[in-house]
Amino acid sequence: MRMIGRWSLGVLTLVLCAPTAAVAEGRECGDAAAIVRQAYPDAVVQGERAVRVRDRTLTLPSATSIDPHAMVCRRWRGRPGLLLVAVPLIAQVRSDGTSGDLDVLVVDESTGAPRQRLRLPHAMDDDAIGVSDVSFDTAAYQIGPDRLAFGVRQTRMGSSRPNPLLETTLSLYEVRDGALAPVLENLVVSRSLGEWDLSCPGETLSTERILRMTPGRRGQDISILERRARRVSKTDKSGQCLTTDRTEPPRTILIPFDGERYALPPSLRRD
């Protein structure tokens, strides 16, 4: 795979595809304003897409533009009639970063009324490594008999050219006892981390983790297939930039389910 700067074409594809997915999920909100009115009765409209909720600002989705702070929705595959909604609630946008929470809601699609909700404090906080995308993952995360979880993915991108970073995390939630409960938090499912001199010499380490549900003692455990690849670039005596790729042997990591949560080792979580 040839390089564009220090970014591989695979990483560039992920960057370009994420906005397309974000627009599609925004369109699934339907009447987003009606959802907001029911979820936040004290909300005050401040503009075409901006809504003030007490000391926070939420942004309605757009059919054409991309905004990582806009709400996104997705029909819950496996639970017909339910809509998953993620609402960034932004407290402050500064030149050096953003502070804010993320509300995750399960909504009745026919009425727009929220059934369950969970506030994730500081989930939208960022700095030089900024949140570039929030999306839902509705793969079949069957964590036990009649227990289906859904995923929330967050992608963050670094602003440093000499030290590029692109990282996606996955968290899983289920409806339990009438409320939303986290079962897996901030698993890094992909990461590309590099260091280079903006010319040639440098190194990039890419990690990909693929999840599979597997029977366990207290429900479904998660089997993670981890693949890692390293790319090293050096300048030879003639001044030509040479790149060497090395793929590490894949490994499998088992994350057991204790009936309520999957306990992740620190090495697999977002820092």
Rank of each mutant, 00 (worst) to 15 (best):
M3W: 06
I4T: 14
G5E: 04
V11M: 07
L12R: 11
T13R: 04
L16C: 06
A18V: 09
P19W: 03
P19D: 01
A24N: 08
Y40G: 02
P41V: 03
D42P: 15
D42K: 04
A43G: 11
V45Q: 06
V45C: 15
G47F: 03
R49Y: 06
A50V: 14
A50Y: 11
V51Y: 03
R52T: 06
R54V: 05
D55Q: 14
R56T: 13
T59S: 08
L60C: 02
L60N: 08
A63I: 08
S65T: 13
P68C: 07
M71K: 10
R74H: 09
W76V: 11
W76D: 03
R77G: 04
G78P: 13
P80I: 15
A86F: 14
V87P: 05
P88Q: 02
Q92G: 13
D96H: 07
D96G: 05
V104S: 09
V106K: 03
V106P: 07
G112W: 06
R115S: 14
L118K: 13
R119V: 02
L120V: 04
H122K: 14
M124T: 03
D125L: 06
G130T: 12
V131T: 05
S132G: 13
V134F: 04
S135Y: 05
F136C: 07
D137W: 08
A139D: 04
Y141D: 05
P145M: 09
D146R: 13
F150T: 08
F150W: 05
R153P: 08
R153I: 07
G158M: 11
S159F: 15
S160D: 04
R161K: 12
P164T: 00
L165D: 01
E167A: 14
L170F: 01
S171A: 11
L172Q: 03
E174M: 07
R176Y: 10
D177F: 02
D177T: 08
L180Q: 08
V183I: 06
N186K: 03
L187V: 00
V188M: 05
V189D: 01
G194W: 01
W196G: 09
L198N: 09
C200G: 09
P201N: 07
G202L: 09
E203L: 11
T207S: 03
R209W: 01
L211I: 09
L211D: 00
M213N: 00
R217D: 07
R217T: 04
R217L: 12
R217F: 12
Q220A: 02
S223V: 00
E226D: 05
E226L: 02
R227D: 13
R228E: 04
A229N: 13
R231M: 15
V232S: 09
S233K: 10
K234M: 14
K237H: 15
G239I: 00
C241P: 15
L242M: 04
T243S: 10
R246I: 15
E248K: 06
P249W: 11
P249L: 01
P250H: 11
L254P: 00
L254S: 00
R261Y: 07
A263H: 14
A263E: 10
L264D: 01
S267R: 07
R269Y: 13
R269C: 08
